[in-house]
């Protein structure tokens, strides 16, 4: 903390009033503050005798510096508003695996934009995403350079734990905590220090239920949600509660979740959405797609009008498949007549 000297002589009660987040800090660092509100930090730390310091493996000096560091981080974090926003991301060319210079004009991606990334396995999609996440400055194997809002990126994107640039969603991710949906969201909201926790949680549950094929109750344990419900909750939570301005989607299966609505939710929350996918239903939803091969960006394709027409054709086919799926789920039989009728309607 910039005024470290004053910190030591501040009363606990004063500090907690100014920085309520310190309650959790003391708890997680095994420091008992009950009944000690009138002590200063220095006095508090002095009440811990040598045995207790040894037993709890505490180091007074380290604690003092941690408290002040944590207060600084939280003040910066809580003070951040729109100035923290990523309006625009720019990718400047580097080289491919053979050392050839990439031949593309700087790729500019604005917030609320959806970009697809295509290329065979091992072509370098992961490296591109890693370059973005690390805000590469010609210091990764591709020698690419990333700009944020047309400027050299702040170091915090690399090293701060609360300012990760990229959030990730993939088919392989699961919930592992033994909590209900509501408790889970409360925990996430607390870690992000959001105000109006209740309304944020309500909004996430509402949005997730719009995406999921089958609705779920807030008191369901997250580990009991179906695949589609889990995916829906992860997407709604990432859109609304994640601190990261960029969301990377690594293939989402088309089962039990409305992907179009999901993308609309993400861009509606002003995220930049990157999708590594070859599913035409997803890939064509992007305004542009980056083509990768041999570790390099080969070209940037703007989704054509014809492709957009193809997408709406595919969506019709997809909606037929989804309807059939729903019928099977509710124990109905399928008939050829149904298919014909659906085809005509579509």
């Amino acid at each position: 903390m910039k005024n470290g000297k004053r910190l030591k002589t501040r009363k606990i009660s004063e500090l907690l009033e100014l920085y309520p987040f310190l309650t959790n800090f003391f708890e997680d660092n095994l420091i008992d503050i009950e009944g000690k509100a009138d002590l200063t930090i220095n006095e508090l730390l002095n009440t811990i005798d040598e045995d207790e310091l040894e037993d709890k493996a505490l180091d007074v000096e380290k604690l003092l510096s941690s408290i002040s560091e944590y207060i600084d981080q939280m003040i910066e974090f809580l003070g951040e508003d729109d100035s923290n926003g990523v309006e625009k991301l720019t990718i400047l060319p580097g080289r491919d695996k053979s050392g050839e210079t990439e031949k593309f004009d700087p790729i500019e991606i604005s917030k609320s934009e959806i970009i697809s990334i295509v290329g065979p396995t091992g072509s370098g999609k992961s490296r591109l995403l890693a370059d973005i996440e690390w805000t590469a400055q010609e210091d990764t194997p591709t020698l690419r350079k990333i700009l944020i809002n047309d400027k050299l990126p702040d170091k915090k994107w690399r090293f701060s734990s609360s300012n990760k640039l990229v959030a990730q969603l993939s088919q392989n991710m699961n919930f592992v905590m033994d909590l209900t949906v509501r408790e889970f969201l409360e925990l996430h909201a607390k870690s992000r220090m959001v105000e109006e926790e209740e309304s944020v949680i309500e909004k996430i549950i509402y949005e997730a239920n719009k995406l999921a094929g089958e609705k779920f109750d807030p008191d369901t344990p997250v580990t009991s949600l179906s695949g589609g419900q889990s995916r829906a909750l992860m997407i709604a939570d990432t859109a609304i509660l994640s601190s990261s301005p960029i969301v990377l989607i690594d293939e989402i299966e088309n089962a039990g979740i409305d992907r179009k609505k999901a993308l609309r939710l993400l861009v509606g929350e002003e995220k930049i959405v990157l999708m590594a996918t070859h599913d035409p239903l997803l890939a064509l939803m992007g305004n542009k797609r980056i083509v990768i091969n041999n570790g390099g960006i080969k070209k940037l394709i703007i989704t054509s009008d014809q492709e957009k027409d193809i997408l709406s054709g595919l969506e019709k086919m997809d909606s037929i498949v989804q309807k059939m799926r729903k019928k099977l789920r509710y124990g109905e039989s399928l008939s050829l007549e149904d298919l014909m009728k659906e085809n005509e309607n579509a």
Binding site: D28, N29, S161, M173, F175, M177, S191, R192, L241, S242
Partner: peptide, 18 residues
């Protein structure tokens, strides 16, 4: 790669706290 974004964020914030 196998847990949700929310769990990653919560875990990282707990690490940062200590």
């Amino acid at each position: 790669d196998i847990v949700s974004q929310a769990e990653r964020e919560v875990f990282a914030s707990r690490v940062n706290m200590v």
